[in-house]
């Protein structure tokens, strides 16, 4: 009961923060955790990402959507230090993050998952989880040689890992190799492992890709759960049902740029978004003559079909 009220509180708080915001790209948020300015990434002549200004509201679930090739994953890679931006700057919790290597980004509390899940196949599920813990004494070469030094911390980490595994219903698999899990279970494991880092901002790259429908609901629940625990979530997704279901705010990218922002209920009816997904003139014929030709073609096809039917 208590959890229920808290859950609605967090959601309400997130929604309230977005209530009176404009629908323009780059609109300022009341309490941004991540602020991005003029991030550009070019691959040769192709500008994959050119984002002017974007803010991510703390404590909310923000969806990043856009057609294929819009630059969402590239943008993710820039922010998390997995790729170097050609220009631009961004701050996380007020700290400048450009040029910071990926592992330091993760340490500062900004943890990502990957579109193609990266389960560490020949490590057990539990070892995968333990790896996520930070500031481990036993990860230093010399201290690793003396188990006495790190044993107690390892036990704590194991306990936390087991709690998380239980929450993600992977506890039965704890001693199996991660490589033996199904695609959906790997997604769960990757998310649980990211939580071992104790992140403030969780960045999920297509958390639903390749997950069977039975697991989708459970994954959705876990994503919502992150917000309830006070984390901020930014995720890339193609599945619009999921976006509508869990996100508080949606940012739309197309051709590398942010073209619109808005609440999930109305974003898909935004003209800029429709144009981006379907093309600005997707339903208009190109010329008068072509329209005529299209009509005749359709009629001819129809007649041929009718004739075929009657001959039978």
């Amino acid at each position: 009961m208590h959890a229920e009220t808290m859950s609605t509180d967090r959601k309400a708080a997130a929604l309230a923060a977005f209530k009176d915001l404009a629908r323009d790209p780059g609109v300022p948020k009341p309490d941004p955790i991540l602020v991005v300015d003029h991030v550009v990434r070019r691959f040769g002549g192709l500008t994959a990402v050119d984002v002017g200004h974007v803010e991510i509201q703390r404590g909310s679930i923000t969806a990043l959507i856009g057609p294929n090739g819009a630059g969402k994953t590239t943008f993710f890679n820039q922010l998390t230090g997995f790729d170097t931006a050609d220009a631009g700057s961004w701050t996380f919790n007020g700290r400048s993050m450009n040029g910071v290597p990926a592992h330091k980004v993760a340490r500062s509390g900004m943890v990502r998952t990957f579109q193609l899940t990266k389960a560490l196949s020949r490590l057990t599920v539990l070892e995968n989880m333990r790896l996520g813990a930070q500031k481990q004494k036993g990860e230093n070469f010399w201290r690793a040689l003396v188990p006495r030094v790190w044993r107690a911390q390892e036990d704590e980490i194991t306990e936390r890992a087991e709690e998380l595994l239980a929450r993600f219903k992977l506890d039965a698999k704890r001693d199996d190799f991660a490589g033996s899990l199904s695609g959906g279970q790997r997604k769960l494991l990757e998310m649980a492992r990211a939580l071992m880092v104790n992140p403030e901002l969780v960045m999920l790259d297509e958390p639903m890709a390749g997950v069977n429908p039975a697991l989708t609901q459970s994954l959705l629940g876990h994503v919502k759960d992150l917000r309830e625990q006070g984390m901020t979530v930014l995720f890339v997704e193609h599945d619009m049902d999921m976006v509508r279901d869990i996100s508080d705010w949606v940012i739309v990218m197309a051709q590398g740029a942010v073209i619109a922002e808005g609440p999930p209920s109305t974003i898909m009816s935004d003209q800029r978004v429709i144009d981006a997904y379907l093309g600005a003139h997707h339903d208009a014929p190109l010329s008068e003559g072509e329209l005529e030709a299209q009509l005749q073609e359709a009629e001819a096809a129809l007649e041929a079909e009718i004739e075929e039917e009657t001959q039978k």
């Binding site: 998390t80 230090g81 997995f82 290597p101 990926a102 592992h103 330091k104 993760a106 340490r107 943890v111 990502r112 998952t113 990957f114 990266k118 389960a119 560490l120 196949s121 020949r122 490590l123 070892e127 995968n128 333990r130 790896l131 996520g132 930070q134 481990q136 004494k137 036993g138 990860e139 230093n140 070469f141 690793a144 040689l145 188990p147 790190w150 390892e154 990757e190 492992r193 990211a194 071992m196 880092v197």
Partner: peptide, 25 residues
């Protein structure tokens, strides 16, 4: 001793996938 320790775990994880290890700090 090393391979049973968290240090060895990081090595084995690197063998499996470097990027995943980076993403875990």
């Amino acid at each position: 001793l090393l391979m049973k320790s968290p240090w060895g775990r990081v090595l084995k994880a690197i063998r499996e996938d470097e990027d995943a290890v980076r993403s875990l700090g």
